[in-house]
Nucleic acid binder design. Structure first.
Length: 423
RNA sequence: GGAGGAAUGGCAGAGUGGUCGAAUGCGGCAGUCUUGAAAACUGUUGAGGGUCACACCUCCGGGGGUUCGAAUCCCUCUUCCUCCGCCA
């Protein structure tokens, strides 16, 4: 959520920046500013009315104390009208504030200057590429075939016990998955991130805090009986750890890493591109989250990018980094880098990490602030990234490391797996 | 799940209808003293809105109500504690 004063002072600049998202923000920003003005004038009016009745109440109190009951009772009659007025103003004020909030929730974050214009993922800008794309022998298989061949992931069993998009990992498949989680967590904690284990269900306030609500309500699983949501990413519980906090500069930066399953309804997406592990309703992910001083946040973003690079390098997977264009940029993000590994057998790139700076967008919703060097309260910047998302990394490993008679395990994972081949 | 109790400023803890946004202690900040530090002493110190700055308004877990007036009374929700039951 953007801050009102930012909109008041930078309307034209914001409109221009939001054009990168292919959005004409003029109407909504004007509506926001109108509602803001309305809200404030109602507030002023209400304040004046309340000040008047407060004054009268005090007088009445003093009169009673000094035994002048009659005069007091006479004053009482004067308060009736004020009461009526303030009640009405209060209602109007609430309505205006609600309408304002509603509009404000619809405004996406302002893209960073470096965000390229563009409409779709085809307009994303490749900024880095590393690793050789292996030449596979004839008969190389996509991972869902490999999964079947070596009996390491069973999609049909998942369908039986739950539904499509809930795979069952078996034997060395399950072990490899667990190995990846441990390896990622070890890498992240070595880089200074504090490991946390989190609830996999969150309440409504948390959903609003990180921006999944209200705009992405349909993408989360909702447990109606208790009004809780299954987390779509660890970002939600982690970032909300600091909701409503007032931090000191000494506490910054805060760095967390956490492994959780992630649940996404992904309603309406079916077809060839979602086969196998490519898109699931439940998947595992290790996330990193940072809470930063505003002046340090872009340096932090670069650090996160370098960190993810170091992991992919160790796994020896061919990957590229994209700077997302305005049209592809997430609602809450100011700047996002996507990491994609090349899936040899599918001959396409698979997104395995997304690293973003949200600047103050989430912090404003979260009321997550700190006292700066001058003792002034400021919103922090929040950032997060996957390090890494499991299924597509697994797909990449299976496909890129396959040989005629088995799948090799990347060297760094062998100690975690306890085996070096899947046959 | 049942029965009781509680929720107040960074923390602890007073306050049961009228200058209470809230005593007191601790902590924080500033100063005096000191070569420096500690101790002691003095002052200062909640948040949000609003204003150039004041004024002013709101906030004592959330929501609603009674009253001229609510931290204080009533209803309701949430959370925590104690006891009982159940349980990995």
């Amino acid at each position: 959520m953007l801050q009102l004063h930012t909109i008041r002072e930078n309307k034209e600049r914001i409109i221009k920046a939001l054009k990168k998202r292919n959005m004409d923000a003029e109407p909504i920003l004007s509506a926001v500013l109108d509602l803001d003005e309305k809200r404030r004038s109602l507030q002023t009016e209400l304040d004046a009315t309340l000040a008047e009745s407060n004054k009268l109440s005090k007088e009445i109190g003093m009169l009673f104390k000094s035994g002048k009951a009659q005069e007091a009772n006479a004053l009482k009659e004067q308060t009736a009208g004020l009461k009526e007025t303030s009640k009405q103003l209060g209602e109007d004020l609430n309505k205006a504030a609600e309408a304002l909030q509603e509009q404000l929730y619809l405004v996406p974050n302002i893209p960073h200057d470096s965000v390229p214009a563009g409409n779709t993922d085809e307009d994303n800008e490749e900024v880095y590429r590393e690793g050789d794309i292996p030449e596979l022998a004839d008969g190389a298989l996509p991972h869902w075939e490999l999964a079947k061949k070596y009996d390491i992931i069973d999609f049909e069993l998942g369908v039986k016990i739950t539904g499509a998009g809930f795979p069952v990992y078996k034997g060395k498949g399950a072990r490899l998955q667990r190995a990846l989680i441990s390896y990622f967590l070890d890498k992240n904690t070595a880089a200074g991130y504090t490991e946390v284990q989190l609830p996999h269900l969150v309440n409504e306030a948390s959903g609003y805090g990180t921006g999944q609500l209200p705009d992405k309500e349909g993408q989360m699983y909702h447990v109606q009986a208790d009004d809780l949501y299954l987390i779509p990413t660890a970002e939600v519980p982690i970032t909300n750890l600091h909701r409503d906090d007032m931090l000191s500069t000494a506490e910054l930066p805060i760095k967390y890493t956490g492994y959780t399953p992630c649940f996404r309804r992904e309603a309406g997406s079916y077809g060839a591109h979602v086969r196998g592990l490519n898109r699931l309703h439940q998947f595992d992910k290790v996330e990193v989250v940072r809470v930063e001083h505003p002046e340090a946040s872009y340096k932090a973003l670069d650090e996160m990018v370098e960190h993810v690079k170091s992991i992919l390098k160790e796994l020896k997977l061919p990957y590229r980094i994209l700077r997302l264009c305005g049209g592809d940029l997430g609602f809450t993000s100011a700047l996002t880098y996507d990491f994609e590994v090349f899936s040899t057998a599918q001959d396409r790139w698979l997104e395995i990490s997304s690293v973003s700076n949200f600047e103050t967008f989430q912090a404003n919703r979260l009321k997550l602030r700190f006292k700066d060097e001058n003792g002034k309260r400021q919103l922090v910047h929040t950032l997060n990234g996957s390090a890494l998302a499991l299924p597509r990394v697994l797909a990449g490993i299976l496909e890129n490391y396959q040989t005629k008679d088995g799948i090799k395990i990347p060297e760094v994972l062998v100690p975690y797996c306890g085996f070096d081949r899947i046959e």
